[in-house]
């Protein structure tokens, strides 16, 4: 079988894995790095459940092969909170404003929101709606996701 050794940096930690080139980044994160917080909802790039940050930018982890991510700085939902006590402002806001129900789409939304707001917390509502429309949620009707993201933005602007 066609396996290649690969070094990935995820959430500041090094992962040395050996994988087939055909394995997507999402699958390697989940199966080889043990980071199952990144979910797969469609595997064709539409739902956004697998959204993570690569070099600070939101990407679909189902549309990239893990071998391509060599040398990139990857961040998943497990790396969002500073430690086991504190949550990231986006996580806190989703909790407070009931921005999740079943939680399956949540990691993707958190990464999308966190990546966007860390780059620039000063975004108009219209921009936020445009960006958050990248991902699908089936439970919440989105309103609380928007409310939470706006609340997190306000906190991150301070």
């Amino acid at each position: 079988m066609n396996q290649v050794p690969l070094r990935l940096y995820v959430n500041g930690e090094r992962h040395d894995v050996t994988v087939e080139p055909r394995k997507t980044l999402a699958d390697v994160l989940r199966e080889d790095c043990g980071l199952t917080g990144t979910h797969l909802g469609c595997e064709h790039g539409v739902c956004g459940a697998c959204t993570i940050l690569a070099d600070g930018q939101p990407i679909r982890a189902c549309l990239m092969f893990a071998v391509q991510a060599e040398g990139m700085s990857l961040r998943t939902v497990e790396g969002l909170a500073p430690d086991d006590e504190e949550l990231h402002p986006v996580q806190r806001a989703f909790w407070k404003h009931h921005g999740l129900q079943c939680g399956f789409c949540t990691p993707g939304f958190l990464m999308l929101a966190a990546g966007t707001l860390e780059e620039d917390p000063d975004r108009s509502d219209e921009e936020l709606v445009d960006i958050l429309s990248s991902n699908l949620c089936r439970c919440t009707g989105y309103q609380n996701i928007l409310t939470a993201t706006k609340a997190a933005a306000a906190e991150m602007r301070e």
Partner: peptide, 8 residues
């Protein structure tokens, strides 16, 4: 929520 929010 806390576990889900952390990807746990």
């Amino acid at each position: 929520d806390p576990a889900i929010l952390r990807g746990w």
